[in-house]
Design a protein around this nucleic acid. Structure first.
Lengths: 232, 232
DNA sequence: TTGCCTTTGAAACAATTGTTTAATACAATC
DNA sequence: GATTGTATTAAACAATTGTTTCAAAGGCAA
């Protein structure tokens, strides 16, 4: 679990994070956590004042999933907004998707952090709901900012939001349904689902949807464009 | 909760389903469940032999989310496969998306059933993992069948799977992140997120991505097609 | 009625839950 | 070395967990 002796408090925090992510708040018991951390059972109420406070701290530790890269995106977004360079905005959108996907699939961040966030997304805990809210809002604001450069001004806001949700949905789903993917993807194809592969697919799929790239099916066939039919 | 006296066993089952969905397996206590069902605490171990068995039964009761409509889709898919009618396949894909979205958002099915399935998707319970597997596989097979008609044969299978995942991801996300949507969508826009609205968006987004409809941004602007640039 | 079987009821079961206590060990400061 | 404040320990706390027991109630055939 933890590499070196470390602080008792931080050992407790990561052990709690791992178990909360794996078993849920009530699923993980205080004794389990302390055993994994290798500390006494009383340590929880000494360093954090209760199991619930420990949970909140674990979520807070997990939330800044990609803070530094996120800040970089924010910077670049501000530039693009000024220049209005659409090509650069496309690049920014691609990087956003790549960044998000990589953090979901690849283990660039401890697995329990991602899993814990998914849990909060499915059912926000009252104790850290507010904290979680800010995190989500900030992240989504970046994506929406990018889209506002790329999408026509006349498009109503709700459609822009739905577009944003379609994008994050694709990225998040690979972690959400991580365990169920195992029986949807044949074993021999499993190595085709690296973070890079998935990111590339989502980028192509999305840009194609937004009309910012030629339909991504045309790589394999040249016809198929003929029937452009609104299915509704 | 339950409308009429009903059977003790079934009252217990729906009460359990509601609470398991809301609080998780260990979160919901046996006494809570019995209280909501209005039955004695011993009823659980009499009608089901344990809390865990009760949970499995609840999942089994929740799983056939849209079995009848699903069967209908299977039938129509078989027809389309024979005729190879692409326009009809597009219609089928649209109906698949509409059906799934409606079940996720609208309350055509008791909310706890959907929520319980989401919980299983995020973290399948060992006891009903196998059962859940079959349910998911069958549903995804339909989508993949539709896509195999629409996508070029030359496209490798993993890309077809990824395309399918991109579609279900969009549908599922609205339930997964249901609680977090509240602070991404401004209150005045909330009525623009009905099941019909969302389904329409996902259909347009997806068909546009697949090159089966004109890019869905062109409804609002006529330019923007000019820069077709592969962002990578 | 009698007898038989299924269902329900209140109470208790041992085990485990999160939390607390008070004694102890450790380190740094005077 | 004595003292102070922090950190850790084992043991116990009351409360709650899932489960069981056994008696009572109910329905139905003979």
């Amino acid at each position: 679990m933890s590499q070196f002796p470390e602080d008792t408090k931080s050992r407790l925090l990561t052990a709690a994070g791992e178990l909360f992510a794996e078993l849920g708040y009530e699923g993980a018991t205080a004794r389990q956590i302390c055993e994994r951390a290798g500390v006494n059972i009383a340590a929880i109420n000494y360093h954090f004042k209760s199991k619930e406070h420990l949970y909140v701290e674990a979520v807070k530790a997990a939330a800044p999933l990609f803070r530094p890269e996120e800040a970089d995106l924010e910077l670049r977004l501000a530039e693009v907004k000024k220049s209005g360079d659409r090509a650069q905005a496309v690049q920014l959108l691609a990087d956003y998707i790549r960044l998000m996907t990589r953090h979901m699939i690849a283990e660039v961040v401890p697995e329990w952090k991602v899993k814990l966030m998914m849990r909060e997304m499915l059912e926000p805990h009252e104790a850290c709901c507010e904290f979680f809210r800010q995190h989500i809002q900030r992240n989504f604001a970046i994506l929406l900012g990018i889209l506002e450069v790329l999408l026509p001004e006349e498009m109503p806001l709700e459609r822009k939001i739905q577009t944003g949700l379609s994008i994050v949905a694709q990225c998040v789903h690979y972690r959400m349904a991580h365990d169920t993917l195992d029986f949807l993807v044949p074993p021999e194809l499993r190595d085709k689902f690296t973070a890079e592969d998935v990111a590339r697919h989502i980028i192509e799929f999305t840009l194609s949807a937004l009309g910012l790239a030629s339909p991504y099916v045309t790589q394999w066939t040249e016809e198929a464009d003929s029937l452009a039919k609104a299915g509704s």
